[in-house]
Design a binder for these strands. Sequence first.
DNA 1: TATGAATGAGCATTCATTCAT
DNA 2: CATGAATGAATGCTCATTCAT
Lengths: 201, 201, 201, 201
Amino acid sequence: MPKIVNKEQKRKDIAIACSELIHEIGIKKLTVSKCAKTANIGKGTIYEYFESKEDIIFEIINLHIEQYHTQFIQSIKNVKSSKEKVFHFFKFVLDDSIENTKLFNSYREYLSIVLSEDNVNMKNFNVNCDVFFKTQLEKIIQDGIDNKELISQAIEFCEGLLIYEKGLALMKMTNNDFDTKVSSKKFINNLFELIEIKKEK
Amino acid sequence: MPKIVNKEQKRKDIAIACSELIHEIGIKKLTVSKCAKTANIGKGTIYEYFESKEDIIFEIINLHIEQYHTQFIQSIKNVKSSKEKVFHFFKFVLDDSIENTKLFNSYREYLSIVLSEDNVNMKNFNVNCDVFFKTQLEKIIQDGIDNKELISQAIEFCEGLLIYEKGLALMKMTNNDFDTKVSSKKFINNLFELIEIKKEK
Amino acid sequence: MPKIVNKEQKRKDIAIACSELIHEIGIKKLTVSKCAKTANIGKGTIYEYFESKEDIIFEIINLHIEQYHTQFIQSIKNVKSSKEKVFHFFKFVLDDSIENTKLFNSYREYLSIVLSEDNVNMKNFNVNCDVFFKTQLEKIIQDGIDNKELISQAIEFCEGLLIYEKGLALMKMTNNDFDTKVSSKKFINNLFELIEIKKEK
Amino acid sequence: MPKIVNKEQKRKDIAIACSELIHEIGIKKLTVSKCAKTANIGKGTIYEYFESKEDIIFEIINLHIEQYHTQFIQSIKNVKSSKEKVFHFFKFVLDDSIENTKLFNSYREYLSIVLSEDNVNMKNFNVNCDVFFKTQLEKIIQDGIDNKELISQAIEFCEGLLIYEKGLALMKMTNNDFDTKVSSKKFINNLFELIEIKKEK
DNA sequence: TATGAATGAGCATTCATTCAT
DNA sequence: CATGAATGAATGCTCATTCAT
């Protein structure tokens, strides 16, 4: 009986094996050879499970984002106020820990590829990501409205916040003078000033 | 004595000559040879005026943006309402004319390079662009406040709008499902709902 | 499973294939493309076995010298007198046959590279060559001493002779007026005059 | 009246101006542009006085060697013993002062060029250098013979010593393991052991 | 005489992908 | 299933030299 290999699982396995690699050397310097060596398989074998080098990168980034999604859901579980939850939502751009910086840089390089080519897989994947985060944001805001924290129009700003977060990431990536933390705090505070229901004393 | 050329001017001249080229074949496929041929000069001559291939690209993009800045200032001159001016500000992402699409695509490719490398010139240039547009936006909003169109807190949203516009561009570049026009209209309308001074009937 | 090649052997094979090439066109005009064509392999394949163009040159010269070493040991086998053996030792600079001239010229070009760069491989290789020839020379002289042909102090001149031979090569390479044969004969005769044990009549 | 320029003198002047340049950046990295700038003249003007880039290098090296010749004659003026004078003759290879190291390295690069091309000027120049040093060496040795320091056959070793010195230089340039000082001392001492007239006690 | 703008040939190297075994 | 040997297209940059002014 021949060994039955679960292709989808092996894709994941290879991606997991190369997960760190992409942080260490960056996407640009990632070669198929290095991937094969890191995953302890032959170069040719890579092509049994991936269509192209980009496909590998895609799978690895996919993995990272999936992990990030899980973490995100976990992280806002015990957060009470809507504003705080929104700040958690911005963690990806605001957190300067080594761990998150690696993630952020990988995403920057990934973005560079997405912008220079026209990869359908990648674009679809982006759509999914956007949907995930928009859904999360809507849940956060709707909870806030239900709790009488936020005015009902607040729900209209979900997409705007999502887009603002993207712009924030882009700013951080392209403008060294830009103070991401100060700017985002100011924006969110000002926005909440307008959409929060003032508590009576 | 040989003729003395104005180096800075010739840089511009070469950039102008190659200006269309970058739209036609894209930044990625731009080669120094093609630039030289298009500008009707020798390949070596290019290097008398540019330090590297990137330097050429940089100068051309510079040229495009400069033109865009001039056009922008011109275009809002006769616009009356603040909201309309802000929409003009978003023209770069909203206008789907052939002309603007070319510009937008070049910027996408340029962004791809900026994100994948660490070019100081390019980053400085980005800083300058951001400063320009932030200044313009502040002028627009401040005028609106002065004209009693907008509430005084509106000025706090300038940077936020700038960042939102960047996010909008990124969305348009990476997510085919995204309807830029609808989204931005909704966001701006909702925001103005909050920052506009309601006129009495 | 694909065939497994002996990397070290293939390196040699490629070097052998390009061995003549270096004589024909010289080191300076040697290009990787020409090497690949001559060896009937792809340009990329070259880089599977060599680190750089210099590495190829190095391997070819290595090959030549190795052959020369073997020939040298063979050639002095049946030579009786120490002086004659020393003249064999000088064969590389004295022999004007087409074959040896090719070798000498290749060495000249190789030397030119060694002198202009700081290649560790090449320097180590030079050390090994010097060790080989010094050892050979010591054997020759020691045999002469053991056979009562030479005075015991003769052994002290081994390194000197080695160095003299290098100087002789350099003279031949840089000074067209120089008569290598006459000069070396004179020097060796004069030296042997001093270190030979005079036979009683 | 037009300015009469002594071509030969201007050649020297330019060479003098670029004299240090060759030490600083090395022959390989010397460009005609840099020479022109250093000499405060136009690039085209260089070609009024020099036939080629090599011609410039040649003139500079010429200058260095001329200076060295003068120094050499000066330096042995007050040296008494023949052996000591011979050691002065070897100063070029033995002196590790910064000054002499610069000179030695420039000569190494110059040699690299001489070995890779077939420049008649350079070869002729080498002949002259060899003649100069051979003459000096003959004077030294002849003086030793006249002073009853050396045996009459010693004169026969002049050319040999010259060639040995060349070999010594080549060794130093190509073999990092080689101890120039130890080797040359041993050789000269051993040789003088044979050619010196032993003083009676 | 002096200049400096213009030139363009020439070449090493990388690496994703294929396919014979 | 697995492999790794073979491939070759594609391109930025230097710099000695010329020659119009």
